[in-house]
Write a protein that binds this DNA or RNA. Structure first.
Length: 356
DNA sequence: CGATGTGTTGAG
DNA sequence: TCAACACATCGG
């Protein structure tokens, strides 16, 4: 079953910069399952000589890139990398196979990849899918495509990230019940920590990520180096922070830019404080961010009132952002965390709502 | 047994 | 890099 071992070393980039004319496909839910062939090409011919109908051994070729016909009338999807074919699975519908190819193309060749329909870059709503693709290995994506679980996984990832409308930070906790909490107990690995410098919390509105850590944990894709990508990090309150992450040629450094200053402000970060980055060890590869006061010093975190309301049977937390003039004391970092965690509970899981 | 997807080739 | 095609192998 396992064929090519997919390595992640796709450093090469000579992307053909020819934006394809793409037709953004609608949120197709469940396409018909008819097996009739409407594609291009002929699969049946008449042998007028003998008067018998004969199956042409010639299979109908697909109009879509990366899509090949299967003997049984279905469609296969494949993509090539490093002289080798990577099989993406078989599909009933030609378009499904084409979509699978598109997804793989985006993951294997970056945002500018030539695709059948998709063009992820640009639109804000696609940030999540881009982040989703970036946070999964090629092998994982291929596996999802072959098992036809890509959309489910993507949807689930969206739930975890939390939906936000026009930058509002609202997080719907979908799987937390007291201490059996999926999220709270989710295994995560420490990636690295950085003691922030004055400039990291100053007017430059950026955090420099030490090169060694950046390249190890947040490898940038080919074309994305300059433009950067948007990464989502969840903090201990469940709030999702979205930072632009890119490489600055001028200073030869990796940085978190857009969104970072908000974090500094809300958390009241000071030079000498330590920010740490984690990632869940599960398949979702969720990123987390946390901070603590300068090691040794007892610092008080700025505690913000957390508003909560019940809506559609789900608790929704609204965490105030600006105007964080703290007016409470007595809680050090550790204590604060417990309080935050304790306030999140008693919600049934409600994932996989739109499962196919 | 039918379906899958690999081996392989030749065109671009 | 890509699809066409044959057919070995998979899996129910």
């Amino acid at each position: 079953m396992d064929a090519t071992s997919l390595d992640e070393s796709t450093t090469t980039d000579s992307a053909s910069i020819s934006p394809p004319t793409f037709t953004p496909f609608p949120p197709t839910k469940s396409p018909p399952e008819s097996l009739c062939r409407v594609g291009s090409g002929t699969s049946v011919i008449f042998d007028s000589e003998s008067g018998i109908e004969a199956e042409s051994r010639k299979l109908p070729s697909s109009k879509y890139k990366g899509v090949v016909p299967q003997p049984n009338g279905r469609w296969g999807a494949q993509i090539y990398e490093k002289h080798q074919r990577v099989w993406l699975g078989t599909f009933n519908e030609e378009e499904e196979a084409a979509k699978a190819y598109d997804i793989a193309a985006q993951r294997f060749r970056g945002r500018d990849a030539v695709t059948n329909f998709k063009q992820l870059a640009e639109a804000e709503e696609n940030d999540i899918e881009i982040a989703f693709l970036d946070s999964h290995s090629k092998a994982e994506i291929v596996d999802m495509l072959r098992k036809h679980t890509y959309n489910d996984e993507l949807e689930q990832s969206k739930r975890n990230y939390g939906l936000d409308v026009n930058g509002k930070r609202i997080k719907v906790e979908g799987g937390v019940n007291s201490f059996g909490s999926d999220r709270v107990l989710k295994a995560r690995e420490q990636l690295f920590e950085k003691t922030v410098t004055p400039s990291d919390v100053g007017k430059l509105n950026r955090l420099v990520i030490p090169k060694q850590h950046a390249e190890k944990h947040f490898p940038l894709q080919s074309g994305s180096t300059s433009k950067g990508v948007l990464l989502n990090f969840e903090d201990v309150t469940g709030k999702v922070w979205r930072f632009r992450y890119s490489y600055w040629n001028s200073s030869q450094s990796y940085v978190l830019t857009k969104g970072w200053s908000r974090f500094v402000k809300e958390k009241n970060l000071k030079a000498g404080d330590v920010v740490s980055f984690q990632r869940s060890t599960g398949p979702d590869k969720q990123l987390y961010i946390d901070w603590k006061g300068r090691t040794g010093a007892s610092v008080e975190k700025a505690v913000e009132p957390v508003q909560m309301m019940r809506l559609f049977g789900v608790n929704i937390f609204k965490i105030p952002g600006n105007g964080v003039d703290k007016m409470n004391g007595g809680c050090n970092g550790k204590r604060m965390r417990e309080m935050e965690l304790l306030s999140i509970e008693c919600i049934k899981k409600q994932r996989m709502i739109g499962a196919v």
